[in-house]
Amino acid sequence: MNLEGLILLLYVLVLASYLGFELIAKVPPTLHTPLMSGSNAISGITIVGAILATNELGYTAFSKWLGMGALILATINVAGGYAVTDRMLKMFKKK
């Protein structure tokens, strides 16, 4: 990666963090547990990297095995995180 590429990514990082702080500060305390489990699911976005790492031919490459391990873990986060968050949010009812 060159320096310009890095700067672009840093822009994305700074703006997304700022947006994150603004949005999440407004989440009511009632929903903080679903927010956390939902973030578990979102941090499963490493699934993208894991898929690409698994995309190596042959089973002799250590990098591929690392990718497959990562893929299982990230999928647990994604599937489990979204499912449990949905399960919780379903329970929140108004009178």
């Binding site: 990514l9 994305v12 990082l13 997304a16 963090s17 947006l19 994150g20 702080f21 949005l23 999440i24 927010l35 956390m36 973030s39 979102i42 941090s43 976005i45 490493t46 993208v48 990297g49």
Partner: peptide, 12 residues
């Protein structure tokens, strides 16, 4: 997309 998602979780 990893950076955006990661930043949201980090901020949260």
């Amino acid at each position: 997309v990893l950076i955006v998602a990661g930043a949201l979780v980090g901020a949260s």
